[in-house]
């Protein structure tokens, strides 16, 4: 059993000496200040944010447009907010992630497809 697993993991190629890699150049140019600024801006569109100034991503147009009203137990709202804080997500996204986790756990594959259509 042990042997079998080792063999199946063996990709059968020769090992590469570390020296072969240190001799290769990967000289990468540091982005110019201008490029850094551009990268920050592009990143922001994808939700990549500066920790120094703002904590939460800026979204141009929110995909969250449907209002839901439902009652919860006392404290549940705060719990949701706490989870969101830890995941650094908005409450709406937290709810979606929770649904996705549930869909995956329960293997509701048809709903997974639907979920992906809605979210991506």
């Amino acid at each position: 059993m042990v042997d079998k697993q080792r063999i199946s993991l063996d990709l059968g190629e020769d090992n590469i000496d570390l020296e072969e890699l240190t001799g290769l150049s990967t000289h990468v140019y540091k982005p110019t200040v201008h490029q850094q600024k551009a990268m920050e801006e592009e990143g922001e569109k994808l939700g990549f944010v500066s920790r120094q100034s703002r904590k939460r991503p800026v979204r141009k147009r929110s995909p969250y447009t449907v209002q839901n009203n439902f009652k919860t137990r006392v404290g549940m709202k705060e719990l949701l907010q706490e989870v969101s804080d830890r995941l650094e997500t908005y409450d709406q996204e937290t709810l979606e992630l929770a649904m996705l986790a549930l869909i995956e756990k329960e293997k509701l594959n048809d709903l997974l497809k639907k979920y992906n259509e809605l979210v991506t």
Binding site: M39, E40, G43, G47, F48, V49, S50, R51, E88
Partner: peptide, 9 residues
């Protein structure tokens, strides 16, 4: 594990 400028750079 957060999308940030550090990651971008």
């Amino acid at each position: 594990g957060v999308a940030s400028n550090t990651v971008t750079f």
